[in-house]
Structure formats: C-alpha cells, structure tokens
C-alpha cells in the first residue's frame, strides 16, 4: 500500500514525540527536530505536534512564531545567517550582505526559488572578535571577506550533487 506523505510526516513526528517525551516541555526539542528535518515547521506538522502533545494548535503556532530559528513558511535547505550586530557592523558586514545578495539573487528574508538557500539576518552570533561572521545552518564562517562569499555558497552547492547527503543541520538529534 502506498503511504501518503502526510502519513509519513505523522509517523515521523510521533517517533520524535516518543523520543522526547509527551510533555509540554518537550515542545521545543520536537519543533527543533522538525525544523532540522524539513527546514521549517509547516501547518500540518504543527497540527500533528498539537495532537500528540494535547495542545491547541494556536499554542504551537505561538511558540514557532516566537523563535527566530523556527520557521513557519518554507525555508531553504541552507539558511545563511549573517550577523548584523554592532561588532560585525564595525567590521563592515554590509559589504558581505551586498555580496551575498549578489551571489544568491535574493534579498534578506527571502528564499531562492529552487528552495536551496534562505538569506537571513542574525543577532549577535557570539563571534564578535572575528567579524564579519555568518552561520550556514550550524557551520561557522569568520572574518568573511566579500571575495570569499562565492566559495562559501559553492561549498553548500556541492551537497546538491547526485549522492546528496542529508542537511548538516541536525539539532535535537
């Protein structure tokens, strides 16, 4: 029998809930795992989590919308987060920002049409002594120069080859 995608998502989320425990305090770890797996927390996933944990879906939406690392809408396989806080600003983060926009062809807050990259601002990544700094999923890049931006993006694109692995981002694993 064919398994519908929704059924599969439901089973996967059930397994996550079983792993983290059926209490409200497991909500964030479960959502983080969903985000890592599917790059966002879609409506259907929020409904399933709500059912499994015995919450109203609005409660789940409230949490998803609060945290900047949890996304409701679709996000790219790679999320590029450039730090915009003071020390990185002093280190000329705006040039890196411009070059990222040039390389990806999108503005901050957007996702490439092929669903591969999202470009976002981050607030202080804790790499203030080596700015400008950025995160690509959970990988750190420091002292980025404008001419390195292309290589950073190309490094990610390798993953989309024939034997593509799962995303490196694996929170809550």
């Amino acid at each position: 029998m064919l398994v519908s995608q929704q059924q599969r998502i439901q089973e996967d989320i059930r397994a996550m809930v079983d792993k983290h425990g059926r209490s409200r305090s497991s909500l964030l770890p479960v959502l983080q795992e969903i985000q890592a797996r599917w790059s966002s927390v879609p409506d259907f996933a929020m409904q399933v989590v709500a059912d499994e944990l015995g919450l109203h879906p609005a409660e789940v939406y409230g949490v998803v919308s609060f945290y900047s690392f949890l996304d409701h809408g679709p996000r790219g396989r790679f999320v590029v987060r450039l730090c915009r806080t003071i020390s990185c600003e002093l280190a000329c983060k705006s040039r890196i920002a411009r070059q990222l926009e040039n390389e990806l062809g999108i503005a901050f807050g957007q996702t490439t049409p092929d669903g591969r990259f999202s470009l976002e601002w981050a607030n202080c990544l804790g790499l203030c002594d080596q700015g400008p700094a950025l995160l690509v999923n959970d990988r750190v890049w420091t002292r980025v120069t404008p001419d390195q931006v292309h290589a950073i993006i190309e490094d990610c694109r390798k993953v989309f080859g024939a034997h593509a692995a799962q995303p490196a981002h694996a929170s809550g694993a």
Partner: peptide, 10 residues
C-alpha cells in the same frame, strides 16, 4: 549567551 559583544561562554 546573546548579549552583543559577548563570546566568553563560547
């Protein structure tokens, strides 16, 4: 550790 300019805990 989220305070801008703080990275000692890292």
């Amino acid at each position: 550790e989220g305070e801008p300019g703080t990275f000692k805990d890292r």
